[in-house]
Computed example of a mutant assay.
Amino acid sequence: MSCQIELLPGAISEIFASAAETGRLTLCDRYGLMAAAMDETLDEEERRAINRLLRAIVRGRVQLIS
Results as ranks from 00 to 15, higher is better:
Met1Gln: 00
Ser2His: 01
Ser2Val: 08
Cys3Met: 00
Ile5Trp: 00
Glu6Cys: 01
Leu7Arg: 01
Leu7Gly: 05
Leu8Tyr: 07
Pro9Trp: 03
Gly10Ala: 02
Ser13Gly: 13
Ser13Lys: 06
Ser13Pro: 15
Glu14Pro: 01
Glu14Val: 14
Ile15Leu: 01
Ala17Met: 05
Ser18Arg: 11
Ala20Val: 14
Glu21Tyr: 13
Thr22Leu: 05
Gly23Phe: 06
Arg24Gly: 07
Thr26Phe: 12
Leu27Met: 09
Leu27Thr: 12
Asp29Arg: 07
Asp29Gly: 02
Arg30Lys: 08
Tyr31Thr: 14
Tyr31Val: 14
Met34Tyr: 15
Met34Gly: 09
Ala36Phe: 14
Ala37Cys: 13
Met38Ala: 07
Met38Gly: 14
Asp39Ile: 09
Asp39Ser: 13
Glu40Gly: 12
Leu42Lys: 06
Leu42Glu: 08
Asp43Glu: 07
Glu45Ser: 06
Glu46Arg: 04
Glu46Ser: 10
Glu46Tyr: 06
Arg47Glu: 13
Ala49Leu: 15
Ala49Trp: 13
Ala49Asp: 07
Asn51Ser: 08
Asn51Glu: 10
Arg52Lys: 05
Leu53Asp: 06
Leu53Ala: 04
Leu54Asn: 12
Leu54His: 12
Arg55Thr: 14
Ala56Tyr: 02
Val58His: 06
Gly60Ala: 03
Gly60Phe: 03
Arg61Glu: 11
Val62Gly: 02
Val62His: 01
Gln63Met: 04
Leu64Ala: 09
Leu64Pro: 02
Ile65Glu: 03
Ile65Arg: 02
